[in-house]
Simulated scan of single mutants.
Amino acid sequence: MTNVKEKRTGEPQRPLEELDAELARLLAERLERTRALGGDGGKARAPHAAAAAAGLPPGLLEDLLSRLEREAHKGAAAAAFECAAADPRPVVIVGGAGGMGRQLRSHFERSGWPVRVLERDDWGRADELLAGAGTVIVSVPIDATERVIGLLKGRLAPDALLCDVTSVKTEPVHAMMAAHPGPVAGLHPMFGPDVAGFTGQVFVHTPGRCPEAAGELLRQIEIWGARICTCTPEEHDRAMGIIQALRHFTTYAYGVFLAKLHPDIRQILELSSPIYRLELEMVGRLFAQDPHLYADIILASPRNAELIRQYVEGLWPELLVIVGRDREEFIRRFMTARAYFGDWAGKFMRESGEMLNLIQAERARRK
């Protein structure tokens, strides 16, 4: 392999300022080209070979290109998308003025779909707004979802696709199938309304009735750059109990306990390793957001309460090991948990290390 140093042996060394100017020009050209590809330059490149040929450290070029792609997505935030439907019928977003509703409206409009919004003060003309709609999406708080679905009964065309985007699926899907005899699909965007775009995000799809009728909608979501994960409503809710309810409860409980201890956060941060600082930031992130949202997620179903109860009760035996200073038992339990994670433990170790390195590099850049 001929690396950069060997290649330039005997050549006059160009000033750093000149190299920086050339690098900036090439980055600008690469950024513009990535935007022209719809913010996804990754499909058109094989950086490993190019980086190796240039003698670059492993991962450097990949990190740089990933950053360029993120910037390209920001710059392309208002760009148009291909339309998945040849002749799209209107989309009605019930709750379209909310955070997720606004995101969906923007993406549909930029894809050429006619969009109407039905808000809480619009029910007097709901029949007018729903007339001719091909897709109706309920995007309201969890505690209002089933009630709002009930208000749609008898108002939709027989072949209209009825969807919801709440983080609970079993009850809303059953409610939609009871309210509408036509196609039904449950959706759950696995991200918040503050994302810059849908590229790289996950939409969960829980089919209800006539799953083929959701084909154009799902293709449109994929055109937006998101990944579709399909499962049953029941499978979704069991997984969300762990992914959302249990995780959010643990973060909530940790933050509430910290508030009772009331340590100096500035000092805690100064003494923290990068991984603990990141963990503390994730706790702070939760408390910077809407408490009603997290209350809705955690309190969404009795299943969540039962799972959290099992978790809290399961902590007592672990506490007894600590109180009893039983080192051997602690290690035995640790190894049992490690066996459950298997190869994933090492994979998570590597990936979290890479993530921390990127975060540290970004923080150093900002100083």
Rank of each mutant, 00 (worst) to 15 (best):
I297W: 02
L299P: 00
A345Q: 08
M335H: 14
A300N: 07
E306W: 10
G342Q: 07
M335A: 12
M349E: 13
G284P: 01
A339S: 12
K347T: 14
I297H: 03
P317K: 04
D326I: 02
G342A: 09
R325L: 11
R332V: 04
R309M: 03
W316T: 11
V323P: 01
E281N: 08
R325G: 10
F330K: 07
M282W: 02
S352C: 03
E329A: 12
F330W: 15
Q289Y: 02
Q289N: 10
A339V: 02
W316H: 13
I322M: 14
R332I: 01
R333F: 05
G324H: 06
K347W: 10
D296F: 03
D326H: 10
A339N: 05
D296W: 05
E351C: 00
A345G: 00
E313Q: 14
I322C: 06
R350Q: 12
R333V: 04
E313I: 02
A305D: 06
P317M: 09
E328S: 14
F287W: 05
G314D: 07
M355F: 14
I331C: 02
L319W: 12
I331V: 15
A288M: 07
G314A: 08
I308L: 07
I331L: 15
E328Q: 14
V312H: 03
L293A: 07
R325V: 03
I298F: 07
M282R: 13
Y311R: 05
L315W: 09
R285W: 01
K347C: 01
T336P: 00
G342W: 01
D343T: 13
